[in-house]
């Protein structure tokens, strides 16, 4: 059976999933993950990429403790009870609470009453704190979801396609914001995306997953510093990525 235990503060995120399957509606079971092993070093920004339906979101649900029915082991970074900041595919803000209330409700006891001015200002939400989520555009709602995830000072930041269904300009603006805030307060990040170019812009390391039942086909380390990843460099990195993983995506 699975174990889900936190270890010391300097530990990395380790995922070793032997098997995860779902019951099929017509009986039998469908294997989604099989021998999926990878580790994310402390303060590393890692991306998981893979074909649609390969189990990326399922992996995140196991990691978040939303699903305990799997064989394997997950070691979370952080001491004691690790804090995980999560940005879901949709913002999932409580519509009946204001932006600020949504963020504050997520704060652990130790951070209650924390001054959030800097975070809200950095994300351009300073003047929208009293707004309800329904009054915001999708881009602003995603910023609020990001604010909630960062406000808890997470040991691990998990992002599930956080910029999907945004126009490219808005998505790019949010990627820069994320990088800016993350570089001020580095933490371990695991982001799921189907956009390799996005992964090349943001990540230190990319894990490539196979089709279902999914396992890690290989990892792609990007040593070029982020500030040096101009469009030409990114295009070169993308080419070498495709040379290494020609058929996976």
């Amino acid at each position: 059976m699975n174990t889900l235990r936190p270890v010391g503060a300097d530990a990395r995120l380790e995922i070793e999933i032997r098997r995860k399957s779902f019951e099929a509606s017509r009986g039998g079971s469908i294997d989604v993950l099989h021998d999926l092993d990878f580790a994310v070093e402390q303060n590393e920004f890692a991306c998981l990429v893979g074909p649609s339906g390969c189990g990326k979101t399922t992996t995140l649900r196991l990691l978040l403790g939303l699903d305990h029915d799997f064989e394997g082991r997950i070691k979370l970074p952080g001491a004691g009870e690790p804090r995980i900041g999560m940005v879901f595919q949709e913002p999932i803000l409580l519509p009946w609470r204001t932006v600020e209330e949504n963020v504050r409700l997520a704060l652990p006891k130790a951070l209650q009453g924390k001054n959030l001015d800097h975070l809200f200002d950095a994300l351009g939400l300073g003047k929208l704190r009293a707004f309800y989520p329904g009054e915001l555009s999708l881009g602003l709602a995603r910023r609020a979801a990001l604010a909630r995830a960062l406000a808890i000072e997470p040991d691990l930041l998990v992002l599930d396609e956080p910029f999907v269904s945004l126009d490219e300009a808005t998505a790019q603006q949010l990627r820069h914001l994320l990088l800016q805030i993350w570089s001020e307060h580095p933490t371990t990040v695991l982001m799921v995306t189907h956009n390799v170019q996005e992964a090349i812009m943001l990540a230190d390391r990319i894990f490539v997953l196979s089709p279902r039942p999914s396992h890690v086909v290989g990892s792609f380390l990007i040593r070029v510093p982020r500030q040096s990843r101009n469009p030409q460099v990114r295009s070169d990195i993308l080419r070498s990525f495709h040379e290494r993983f020609p058929t996976q995506l």
Partner: peptide, 24 residues
């Protein structure tokens, strides 16, 4: 259930879950 998942990830206590997630 998406709100329930969010509340679990952010470790809402039982009272906060009832007041801010379920009752509304």
């Amino acid at each position: 259930l998406r709100y329930t998942d969010m509340a679990r990830v952010y470790k809402f206590g039982p009272f906060a879950r009832l007041r801010h997630v379920v009752l509304p």
